[in-house]
Design a protein around this nucleic acid. Structure first.
Length: 278
DNA sequence: TAATGGTGAGAACTTACATCA
DNA sequence: TATGATGTAAGTTCTCACCAT
């Protein structure tokens, strides 16, 4: 963090933030009220682990703009059969040629046939065109999926099969639902992290401002009273909440006057440590 | 009241990458 | 080590429901 040069006063400001135990809200959202607006936090590195790191940079490291490598298969190929030949070998529901390879491994022959039929029904309308139909899950289906997701956010093939049978869905649909559910959870967590870091940033900015002010006051004091007994600057601390100056024997008696001079390798946490001085 | 356009949610899809046999 | 199969994350596309006009 680049702080303004404080001159040759010998005083130094070091700010840090300790984010210990940031809550990981791993629970799936009930309301699923996911904010769509993506907050631009270019200087944050928000992670979803228990100790999110805060990186405040000045410039440069922006999120790399993703260049969408767009291949519009619908436009690239009008022919459904040709289209099915072009689809990904891993994910295509409606392509029987390639996409079935891995899934059929888990399915009995009857199940494969059943799924094949249901896929045909769902993927093609009366005209035989390959219109994508959007599945609407019933409340019961959603509830069961959510319940299952709470227990484990990923499914093994057997669990997928069982769940699909129970829900009267295709295993692929269950699989997709879990993929999307994980994505939503992660997105929400990222937003929570971003909000948290934003608050941290605001608090640090305030703290910085206060300390700069304190520094100016101390400098003015030093000029006004050249004969005063210099007190180790590090023993002077301003409480961020009550804005009182604490120092001298009080602070010095607690610890070495130089102990706080060393750059602290942690950040000030506005939530766990509202005031380090109090 | 029906038609229409905008928008959000989420299901489905594509691609890239990691892992494993 | 190379290779193919597989699973997952990330990003995108597309459908549908809802709402305002």
């Amino acid at each position: 963090m680049g702080l303004p040069d404080t001159g040759n006063s010998g005083l130094e400001l070091v700010l840090g933030l300790s984010l210990s135990g940031a809550e990981e809200t791993n629970s799936p959202s009930k309301a699923d009220n996911v904010l769509r607006s993506t907050m631009p936090c270019p200087n944050f590195t928000a992670t979803s682990n228990s100790e999110p790191s805060l990186t405040l940079g000045l410039s440069g490291e922006r999120y790399q703009a993703q260049v969408p490598r767009k291949v519009d298969v619908n436009k690239a190929c009008e022919d459904p059969l040709e289209l099915s030949r072009q689809t990904s070998p891993h994910s295509a529901v409606s392509s029987f040629s390639n996409g079935r390879v891995k899934r059929e491994r888990d399915l009995s022959s009857e199940e494969v046939e059943a799924e094949r039929v249901s896929s045909r029904v769902s993927d093609e309308d009366e005209d035989g065109t390959n219109a994508r139909k959007k599945l609407r899950l019933t409340k019961e289906q959603s509830a069961l999926l959510e319940e299952s997701f709470k227990q484990h956010s990923t499914l093994n093939p057997k669990q997928k099969q069982a769940l699909a049978r129970q829900l009267k869905l295709r295993p692929r649909q269950v699989e997709v639902w879990f993929q999307n559910r994980r994505a939503r959870t992660k997105l929400k967590q990222t937003e929570v992290d971003c909000e948290f870091l934003k608050k941290c940033c605001e608090t640090l900015t305030d703290e910085n401002r206060r300390l700069q002010k304190e520094l100016q006051e101390l400098k003015a004091l030093k000029l006004a009273q050249p004969m005063y007994m210099p007190m180790p600057a590090a023993t002077l601390t301003m409480c961020p909440s009550c804005e009182r100056l604490i120092g001298g024997s009080d602070a010095a008696s607690k610890k070495s006057p130089f102990s706080s001079m060393a750059p602290k390798n942690h950040f000030f946490s506005p939530f766990t440590n509202p005031s380090a001085a109090c």
